[in-house]
Structure formats: structure tokens, C-alpha cells
Design a binder for these strands. Structure first.
Length: 552
RNA sequence: CGGGACGUAGCUCAGCCUGGUUAGAGCGCCCGCUUUGGGAGCGGGAGGCCGGCAGUUCGAAUCUGCCCGUCCCGACCA
């Protein structure tokens, strides 16, 4: 197939729009792949859609390979569907109504639709089932951003598995994990499987695939030795050892007038921040609890939520006064009548803590001797922490979450009464999993990872065209011959037959990023050949048109 | 939803502080000439509800208020 640039809608830009920040946003705009319609709403232009479809086809092949059955559910759904699971109240839902005033919802995911259909499964003999579709998701995101990084409307491949028991779910989950790994390999993406938070999806277990990039909303924690990967929010890193002063036999009260921060406290006492402890009073349910982390650490809200198995909020000033008899800057664990959750980093050693008396702190406070906490890992892992696997150094990197897989269990099937009769004749709820990949996001992640100062460097598997043939003045005929020879071998060819100068055509070719560029011009014409250049390496060689077929 | 910034030609921006006839530049676009292997040159031309509404004023792109939109940073997620 040959596409002529002179007739393509391919509006390349010399400058990136001023509000484009992420590399993928800039390059996809400049290369004429996408255009914006509104916040988080983007059109895919012909080249952009070709890439999107190539990604889609790779996903399709891999999900088919694990037994997936492609189907299609609507995006527009009756509101009752969401009342069944109670997810009608999810804030990112777009609500609308038809002309008769009946309430509808734009689907932001399809557990409800798929489970609704799964009510037709009746017997264990029909299990397992793997259903998937590519469908439009609409989400009233509080903050779309970064071009394709976070959209309000996007196409997702989402699959749903239905099994008779947990063992079946485990197997389905495992197959998806492997399929996803192959998908990201095939599209040329460097992505890592990490433990993730399941968020509003609920469910028992969830893993995310993080692709390290220059721009993104997630952070990948990885060991320099390559044996540990995690979402930074959930990462288990061992902190650097604290710098502690000599221990005391008993806590010692010190005046710390006007000191309200850890930084100020460490400076006032002439000690390291790691020798202090930070007390964070929170409220979960109806009880006030004191969370305690080392002074140089930050509390991980996600980990604390996991510990509580529920949400929490910071205590108000009134609640703090009532529970501690002191203000926010001088709180500590000694002698308080409430539960103390201390981070593991505080298990050994003595730390400075608030004295629960305004303007006073205690030196030499030791867990187990001066207070009895419940220990838990509630600190945020930091760059430079020690790897929990090998003790190596952990590094944090910006990343994009391109895929997410969940073990849902029976939450949705119970809500919908989606049950089956098992071998033992008993009615049981289907055991479900769900698995999603955002196509546009994957595309953005690829660009983030595959570009240089001149433009995009598409992996072969997803490039809009396999070869970009540049016809320079006087060489139109040989360029066309080259394009036809390549096309005959089954390659997709972009033929730049526009009436433009060489420099502009080369700049566009670099920007668009097809893997191979072929130039026909006066220079090559002298010996009846064309120049073949590799986009990634820049290597160039002169070949006869007749040789092109073989090279391909 | 909290914080910050921005909105003038297709794109990048100037003008606004200190209000004053016809609102500018570069790039892009159209026509002509010249040029032709890394975004050329010359000449001519088209293109603007200065985000919207209201107010102040003899007079508003410029000052004030409200609204809308977009981007960035935080609480959320493929």
C-alpha cells in the first residue's frame, strides 16, 4: 500500500503548541497524529489512527491467543445497571438522560455490562469464559492532562474472566499477566509488572504495568540490580539507617519554644531529622489514632489505608486538643491514651518525640519501653532506600500505568445474581477478573520512550508506515518505483511526493518517525540508486531499487 | 475540588503596566519569479467578534467585575 503525502491529511507543525508539556504530547501534535477538541478529548488524525489500530491488532492477537472472545458492549447504558452495584455514585461518571427523561450513564468501565450478560452462564460446564472488547470509555476526570496521558474519552481493551473458583481465577489472571507482558514487548514498550492499589475498582488483588517515561503520573520504584519493581506508592524499601545520638536511660523533657516543624526541631536540637519522629493524628471510623513515622520519612496514605482497611482523614485541631492536650507541633506517643501505629523504622533506637505539651519535646523515646505501638510499614519508600530483595539501591522513576489487571472475586456477580450450578449441584457466584489496557495511553508511552531531538522513532510493529520514501526534485519517477517495489513486498509506504524542499521533507520524516527512510534525489540518481536510512541509528546506505525488495 | 498561570491570525508570540485614528512580527497559507540532499531568497496577497458578557470612559486589546475555556502543581486513575 502506498500513501501519497501530497494527498494525506498530515498537518505537521514546526513549533509545538505552547501548552504542550510532555514529549509525547508535543511530538504527536507536531507530527500530525492527533488534535485536541477539548480538555482530555482528542481526535486521531489518519497517521495517529493507523498507530492506534496497529496497537489494537497486537492486543487482539494476544488476547485471542489466551482464549479471549471479542465482542462489544455499548458505552451508553441505562442508569439502573449501575445502581445494581452501587457504582452509580462514582464521581467520574458522566450522567445524561434521553428525551423521555430516563437516566443514562456513559460507561467508564464495563464490569456491569459484562456481568449483566454473564447471567446467561448457567453451568460449570460452560466455564471458564474470557470475554473482551475494545470500547470507548468516558470519564469525567477531575484533571485530564498531558495530551494522551490522561483522557476523558478513550478506547480501552478490557477483558473479563468468569471462573468457577479462585483457582480458576488465578489461572486466568496468570494468563492475562503473560499476555500483557507479550503485548508490551510487541509494541516495543519497556514496562514492568508491579503491585498497584486497586482504588475504586475494589477487589482483592491488582497489578499494574508501569512504563518508565519522561512524563507520567506514576512513579516506578526499581532496584538497580533489576530484581525488584514496584509502584512507589506501595513499594517496600528499607530506609537508610538513622543518625542517632547516644541513648538515654529514660526520656528527657526539653524545651523547644516555637518549634513546630521537624526541620526546625532537628536544627534546634542539633541532630539529624532521622533522629526524630513525626506524629500524625488521624481519624478512621470514629476513633482517633496516632500514626508515627521517622522524622525524615513521609506517611504513605495508601499503606495506612491498607492497614486500616478503610479510609482515614487528618484529625482536626479540636480533635487533637481533646486527645493530646497539646497542639499539632508537639505531639508524641508517650502517655497518650489512644492507639499508636508506628512505622517499622521506629522499632529500634531512640528518637525525639513531641511531649504532648506545647513547646516541649522528649529526647530518647524508645518504642517498647516508653510506649507500646502496633508496628506496620506505613512510610513512603524513597529514592535511595535499600531493596527488600537484595539490599541494593532503589531508584524512583516517572512512569505511565499502561495496563492494570484485577482479581475481582464475586462482588459483581453477587450484585447481579450471576450464578452457575457447580458439579456438586450448588448455585455459586461466578468468580471474576478484569483486565484493562488504554490504547492511547500506550501510544503516548511508546512515544515517551521512543523519540530523539528530531522526532518520534516508532518501533516497527506500530509505526504508521513501514517505509517513508522521500522524492526530491527530478527523482519522482525513481521514488515511485522504489515505493512500488516495497509495496509489492507487502510493506506500507508513505511517499512524500509534495512539492517541498529537501530540508522540510527530511525534517518531517524524522518527526513522523517511520523506521526506514528512503531518499531518491540527484545524488543517488547519478548511479541510479536510492539512499536507505535507518531512523533509529541514522545509518545510511545506497541501494539499487531492485535490491529493496530483498532488503525488506 | 484547592493553588498558580494563560487566552491577540493556522502555529509561536509582541502590544496591555501608562486607554487615543487603520492591531503588529516571524513561521505557515495563496499567486509570481528564482532556487532545489537538512525547515532557502525576492515581490505581491489573503487571513483577527484581541475568549464572552457587563461596567468605567468622549474613547477599551489595554482599566474593573463576572463568566467561559485551556494548561501546570496537589487530592484520583487505563
Amino acid at each position: 500500500m502506498i500513501a501519497r503525502a501530497s494527498q494525506l491529511f498530515l498537518p505537521t507543525l514546526r513549533d509545538a503548541p505552547a501548552d504542550a508539556d510532555a514529549a509525547s504530547h508535543q511530538l504527536l501534535m507536531r507530527g500530525g497524529f492527533i488534535r485536541q477538541m477539548g480538555a482530555g478529548l482528542w481526535s486521531f488524525l489518519p497517521l495517529g489512527w493507523r498507530v492506534h489500530e496497529k496497537i489494537e491488532q497486537i492486543i487482539r492477537e494476544e488476547i485471542d491467543a489466551i482464549g479471549g472472545q471479542e465482542m462489544r458492549c455499548p458505552t451508553l447504558t441505562p442508569a439502573e445497571l449501575w445502581e445494581t452495584t452501587g457504582r452509580i455514585d462514582v464521581p467520574i461518571l458522566f450522567h445524561l438522560s434521553d428525551s423521555g427523561g430516563r437516566p443514562f450513564v456513559l460507561s467508564w468501565t464495563h464490569e456491569e455490562s459484562m456481568t449483566f450478560l454473564a447471567r446467561e452462564l448457567q453451568s460449570y460446564k460452560e466455564l471458564p469464559q474470557v470475554w473482551y472488547h475494545f470500547s470507548t470509555k468516558d470519564r469525567d476526570e477531575p484533571r485530564p492532562r498531558g495530551g494522551l496521558l490522561r483522557l476523558r474519552e478513550f478506547v480501552m481493551k478490557d477483558s473479563y474472566t468468569f471462573d468457577a473458583d479462585m483457582a480458576g481465577l488465578d489461572a486466568a489472571f496468570d494468563r492475562h499477566e503473560k499476555a500483557y507482558t507479550r503485548i508490551f514487548e510487541r509494541v516495543g514498550l519497556d514496562a514492568y509488572l508491579v503491585e498497584a492499589e486497586s482504588g475504586v475498582m475494589g477487589g482483592k488483588s491488582s497489578l499494574g504495568f508501569l512504563a518508565p517515561t519522561g512524563s507520567g503520573e506514576n512513579e516506578l520504584m526499581r532496584c538497580e540490580n533489576g530484581d525488584y519493581f514496584a509502584d512507589a506508592e506501595a513499594a517496600r524499601g528499607a530506609p537508610q539507617p538513622p543518625e542517632l545520638p547516644s541513648p538515654l536511660d529514660a526520656p528527657e523533657l526539653v524545651d523547644t519554644p516555637g518549634v513546630g516543624t521537624i526541620e526546625g526541631l532537628a536544627e534546634f536540637l542539633g541532630i539529624a531529622e532521622s533522629a526524630t519522629s513525626k506524629a500524625l493524628p488521624v481519624v478512621t471510623g470514629d476513633r482517633v489514632v496516632l500514626a508515627l513515622v521517622r522524622g525524615d520519612d513521609r506517611l504513605s496514605p495508601e499503606k495506612l489505608e491498607t492497614f486500616f482497611e478503610g479510609a482515614f482523614r487528618p484529625a482536626t485541631d479540636e480533635e487533637i486538643r481533646a486527645s493530646f492536650g497539646a497542639g499539632g507541633g508537639s505531639l508524641g506517643p508517650v502517655g497518650v491514651g489512644i492507639e499508636v501505629i508506628a512505622d517499622e523504622a521506629l522499632r529500634e533506637g531512640q528518637f525525639v518525640a513531641g511531649a504532648n505539651e506545647d513547646g516541649k519535646h522528649l529526647r530518647g523515646v524508645q518504642a517498647g519501653r516508653d510506649y507500646e505501638p502496633t508496628f506496620a510499614d506505613i512510610r513512603q519508600a524513597k529514592d535511595g532506600d535499600a531493596c527488600p530483595e537484595c539490599g541494593g539501591t532503589l531508584r524512583i522513576q516517572t512512569a505511565i500505568e499502561v495496563g492494570h489487571i484485577f482479581k475481582l472475586g464475586t462482588f459483581h456477580s453477587q450484585a447481579f445474581g450471576a450464578t452457575f450450578l457447580d458439579e456438586d449441584g450448588r448455585e455459586k457466584p461466578l468468580v471474576m477478573g478484569s483486565y484493562g489496557i488504554g490504547l492511547a495511553r500506550t501510544m503516548a508511552a511508546i512515544v515517551e520512550q521512543c523519540h530523539d531531538e528530531h522526532g518520534i522513532v516508532w518501533p516497527r510493529s506500530v509505526a504508521p508506515y513501514d517505509v517513508h520514501v522521500v522524492a526530491l526534485p527530478g527523482a519522482g519517477e525513481i521514488a515511485l518505483q522504489a515505493a512500488e517495489a516495497l509495496s509489492a513486498t507487502g510493506l506500507d509506504v508513505l511517499l512524500d511526493d509534495r512539492d517541498q524542499r529537501a530540508g522540510e521533507k527530511f525534517a518531517d520524516a524524522d518527526l513522523i518517525g517511520c523506521p526506514v527512510r528512503i531518499t531518491a534525489g540527484k545524488r543517488s540518481l547519478e548511479d541510479g540508486k536510492v539512499d536507505v536510512r535507518d531512523r533509529a541509528s541514522g545509518d545510511e546506505k545506497r541501494l539499487d531499487v531492485a535490491e529493496l525488495g530483498k532488503e525488506a
